[in-house]
């Protein structure tokens, strides 16, 4: 499985990278533009990401904009709602409007920092993502 972690902070990036490494190949983007470049490149190489952990307040293009752009690209490619890349928002932002916007733009889950391994694993299971055998 290919995973993209989009995080501008080194500590948060390292934590997610280490927690997700047992599930597959983890790539890193440190801002929204890098995230979009990685997403597009992976699709062009026919090796798309299956999971994206996406921070919201990141430089260049924020996480909500990245989420919208990814869903627009998927829609343009004929990918049906729910069949695209699984996106978990991982952020310290917890106001109801931001959370509602993220789900409106079709994120699959929303995890508020601090990251809790148990909650992350529970979320992955809910999305049908398990440790490889």
């Amino acid at each position: 499985m290919k995973i993209l972690v989009v995080e501008d902070d080194f500590t948060s990036r390292l934590l997610l990278q280490k927690l997700l490494a047992p599930y597959g190949e983890v790539h890193i983007a440190i801002n929204g533009r890098e995230a979009m470049a990685a997403f597009r490149m992976a699709r062009e190489e026919s090796a798309p990401y299956q999971l994206i952990c996406l921070d919201i307040v990141i430089p260049d293009l924020d996480g909500q904009a990245v989420l919208q752009e990814i869903r627009h690209l998927e829609e343009a490619e004929g990918i049906v709602r729910g069949n695209g890349v699984k996106i978990i928002m991982t952020t310290v932002v917890q106001d109801p409007l931001t959370i509602m916007n993220a789900f409106t733009h079709q994120c699959e889950a929303y995890l508020v920092k601090p990251i809790d391994k148990g909650k992350l694993v529970e979320t992955l299971h809910r999305l049908g993502i398990y440790l490889p055998k």
């Binding site: 501008d8 902070d9 080194f10 500590t11 948060s12 921070d55 307040v57």
Partner: peptide, 15 residues
Amino acid sequence: RRIAHTVKGAAANVS
């Protein structure tokens, strides 16, 4: 504001 926000998230992750 942005840097403070980033620090807030990082600091939360390290309790």
